[in-house]
Design a protein around this nucleic acid. Structure first.
Length: 579
DNA sequence: CTGGGAATAT
DNA sequence: TATATTCCCA
C-alpha cells in the first residue's frame, strides 16, 4: 500500500465505454486505456452508448465527453444512471471551469477529467469500475499526480471530496476543499493502517477460472491443493485463500454433478449467464473435467458423454434434441448447441477416426455456435463452426478461439468492418432488408466504430454467421464455398483468412446430431456418411488424440466482443493461446 | 504453516 | 441467493 498508486491487477478485466464525438480525443483516450490494460469500447454518439450498454451488458465504466451534439455528457450520464444505477460515468471535457466541474459531479458523475486527459488519471479508473462492481470504493492510494498543480489534480481532489460524503457539505467548503481532502485522505490511510485495508474481492472471471482449471488439469484433481494451484496460476495478487475458496466451490460443484447429474448442477449454477459475462464456459469446463474424471474412474474406452451430457445439456433450454447451453434460442428450427445430440444417439459422436471433429457442413446450412436467433435462421455463434474442422485433431486444438477480425472491407478496401455474432441480442434487424447483408450479431463499422447494425442470418442467405463483413463478396471458411460460412473467418474467397483448413467440396455433409426439420443440421463435427438432407448422419467417434475440451467453447473469448481490434490485440489472441 | 470445512459477509 | 472471505481446527 506504499505504492504511489494501486495498479490495476492484471487479472481484473474492465470494459470501459468511451463516448466522444471527437474522433481524435476518442482515439487518444481509447489508446491510453488500452495501454493500461483496459478493454475499451468506443462510440461517437450518446445514443449509441446507450445501445451499447444495453447490448453489451458488461460495461463496467463509461467515460463520456461533456459537449456533444444531440445529447451532452451529463444528459447521457443521467440516462445511464436511471437505467443502470450502478454504472459509474466519468465526464471529460476541455472545460475546466469549476462551476462546470461541480455541476457534473453533483449530477452524479463519479469523476471529472479535464482535457487533455492525464494518462495517469486514466490508469486508475478501474477503481471506479470496481466501485460499481462491489458497491464500495477503493481509494487507498496516493496519487503521484497530486504533486503538481494540474487540473487533473484539482479534479482528483474534487472527486475525493464528493466520494463517500455529502456533496452539499463539501460545496459549502469548497474554498478549502484541498485541505479537507488532504485531511480526509490522511484519515483514510490511518484508519486503514489500523484496521487493515479492505481487500478487493477477487472476481473469478472466465479467464481467471480457466487458469484455475488449467492448473487443476496440470496438477491433477487429486493432488490439486490451493498452494499448488496458486503457484501454477501465477497470478499476481491472488492469494492462497482465494484459491482455496474457489476450490471449495469447485468441489461442491463437482459433487453436485456426481450426486444429481450434470443437468441439475448446471441448472442452478449460474442463472445470470449471458454471453459476455456469464460463466457458461465454466459449465463447459466442468463438464469436461467431470467427464474426464468419470472416464478415468470407469476406465471407459468410449466416451461417456452422450447419455449423460448430451441430453442433459439439451434439456437446458427445454429443447428435446438440441440445446444451447443457457443461451438464447427462439427458433423452432435450427439449433445448435454445443453438445447437441440426437435423441436416439447412443454412441459417441465427436467425429471419427477418419474425419474427426469436422465442422458442420456449411454448404446449405449454418450452424453451430452459441446463439440462435431469428426466424428460419440459424444459430450463429461467435465461434460458430469455426471451432473445429480438419482431419487432424491437433489442428482443431489450435484453432480454438482464434477469433479473427476482418481485415477487409470489400466495398472500400478500407480496413474493415468489425463485427461479431452471437451476442445476447434480443433485437435484431436486417440491413436494408437485404439478405446478403445480414449478419448475425453486431457489426461495428470502421468509420468511427459506430454501431451500424445487427442482423440475422436467414434462410438461404449467404451470410456470415459470425464475424460479419459487409460487401458483395462473402467470406467463407472453407475455400470454395460460396455461402454460409460459419465462424470468424474473413476475407474474400481468394484471400480469406480462415480459421479452418479447407474442406473438400464433395457431397459429404457433416453433422453431428441430426437434421432439424428440413435442411438444417448442426453440430460440431461431420461424418462422411452424413447428409444434411437425410437422417443418415452417423455419429462418429472421438478421434484419437482428440480432446473433449476441443469442442468446448471458451466464452471468455467473447469478452472481446466489441473490442476495438488492432494488431497488437490480434497478436495477443494468438500469443495467449492457453494450450 | 497448510488444507479443508463451516461460518460469515456482501 | 450466490459467491467470496474469514474463521477454525486437525
Amino acid at each position: 500500500m506504499s505504492e504511489t498508486f494501486m495498479a490495476k491487477p492484471s487479472f481484473l478485466r474492465f470494459n470501459v465505454l468511451v463516448v466522444d464525438d471527437d474522433s481524435t480525443s476518442l482515439a487518444i483516450v481509447s489508446a491510453v486505456l488500452k495501454h493500461w490494460d483496459y478493454d475499451v469500447v468506443t462510440v461517437k454518439r450518446p445514443v449509441d452508448a446507450l445501445a451499447m450498454i444495453r447490448i453489451h451488458q458488461d460495461i463496467d465504466l463509461v467515460i463520456t465527453d461533456l459537449h456533444m451534439p444531440e445529447m451532452n455528457g451529463l444528459e447521457l450520464q443521467k440516462e445511464i444512471n436511471e437505467e443502470f444505477i450502478h454504472l459509474p460515468v466519468m465526464v471529460m471535457s476541455s472545460d475546466d471551469r469549476e462551476s462546470v466541474i461541480m455541476k457534473s459531479l453533483a449530477s452524479g458523475a463519479v469523476f471529472y477529467m479535464v482535457k487533455p486527459v492525464n494518462p495517469d488519471a486514466l490508469r486508475n479508473v478501474w477503481q471506479y469500475a470496481v466501485t460499481s462492481k462491489k458497491g464500495k470504493s477503493i481509494f487507498t492510494e496516493e496519487k503521484s499526480s497530486l504533486a503538481n498543480g494540474s487540473s487533473a489534480e484539482k479534479i482528483s481532489f474534487l472527486h475525493d471530496i464528493v466520494s463517500g460524503s455529502s456533496m452539499i457539505e463539501e460545496k459549502e467548503s469548497k474554498t478549502n476543499s484541498k485541505r479537507k481532502a488532504s485531511k480526509r485522505r490522511k484519515d483514510e490511510l490511518e484508519g486503514e493502517n489500523a484496521a487493515a485495508p479492505k481487500k478487493a474481492k477477487v472476481v473469478w472471471t472466465n479467464s481467471l477460472h480457466n487458469r484455475f482449471l488449467q492448473a487443476i488439469r496440470h496438477i491433477t484433481l487429486e493432488k490439486a491443493v490451493p498452494k499448488k494451484i496458486l503457484e501454477f496460476m501465477n497470478v499476481p495478487g491472488l492469494t492462497r485463500e482465494n484459491v482455496a475458496s474457489h476450490l471449495q466451490k469447485y468441489r461442491i460443484f463437482l459433487k453436485r454433478v456426481a450426486d444429481d447429474g450434470i443437468n441439475a448442477a448446471l441448472k442452478n449454477f449460474n442463472h445470470r449467464s449471458s454471453l459476455a459475462s456469464g460463466r457458461t464456459s465454466m459449465m463447459l469446463q466442468e463438464v469436461q473435467d467431470y467427464a474426464q474424471a468419470i472416464e478415468k474412474q470407469l476406465q471407459m474406452r468410449t466416451s461417456p458423454f452422450i447419455p449423460r451430457y448430451g441430453r442433459g445439456i439439451s434439456e437446458l433450454n427445454g429443447n428435446t434434441s438440441f440445446g444451447s447451453i443457457g443461451l438464447q434460442s427462439h427458433n423452432s428450427l435450427s439449433h445448435v448447441g454445443l453438445l447437441g445430440v440426437q435423441d436416439n444417439f447412443h454412441q459417441p459422436f465427436f467425429g471419427n477416426t477418419t474425419y474427426p471433429l469436422y465442422q458442420a457442413n456449411p454448404g446449405t446450412t449454418f450452424g453451430t455456435g452459441l446463439i440462435d436467433m431469428g426466424t428460419n435462421s440459424f444459430s450463429c455463434g461467435g465461434l460458430s463452426g469455426g471451432l473445429m474442422n480438419g482431419t487432424n485433431s491437433n489442428q482443431i486444438f489450435h484453432q480454438k478461439s482464434k477469433l479473427r477480425p476482418d481485415p477487409y472491407d470489400n466495398n472500400t478496401g478500407a480496413s474493415s468492418l468489425k463485427g461479431f455474432g452471437a451476442s445476447g441480442l434480443e433485437k435484431m434487424w436486417t440491413i436494408n432488408n437485404n439478405p446478403y447483408l445480414n449478419y448475425a450479431g453486431i457489426r461495428l463499422k470502421n468509420d468511427g466504430d459506430q454501431l451500424v447494425g445487427a442482423g440475422e442470418v436467414g434462410l438461404n442467405v449467404k451470410g456470415d454467421a459470425g464475424a460479419g463483413n459487409e460487401g458483395a463478396t462473402f467470406h467463407h471458411l472453407p475455400l470454395g464455398y460460396s455461402s454460409s460460412p460459419a465462424g470468424f473467418a474473413v476475407g474474400n474467397e481468394q484471400e480469406h483468412t480462415s480459421v479452418l483448413p479447407p474442406l473438400s467440396l464433395s457431397q459429404q455433409q457433416y453433422c453431428l446430431g441430426k437434421k432439424v426439420e428440413n435442411d438444417f443440421t448442426f453440430g460440431l463435427m461431420n461424418d462422411a456418411n452424413a447428409s444434411v438432407n437425410d437422417d443418415t448422419a452417423q455419429p462418429g467417434r472421438l478421434g484419437e488424440g482428440a480432446d473433449f475440451g476441443d469442442l468446448l467453447f471458451d466464452l471468455s473469448d467473447f469478452q472481446f466482443l466489441f473490442q476495438d481490434w488492432d494488431d497488437e490485440f490480434i497478436d495477443s489472441l494468438f500469443r495467449d493461446q492457453p494450450y
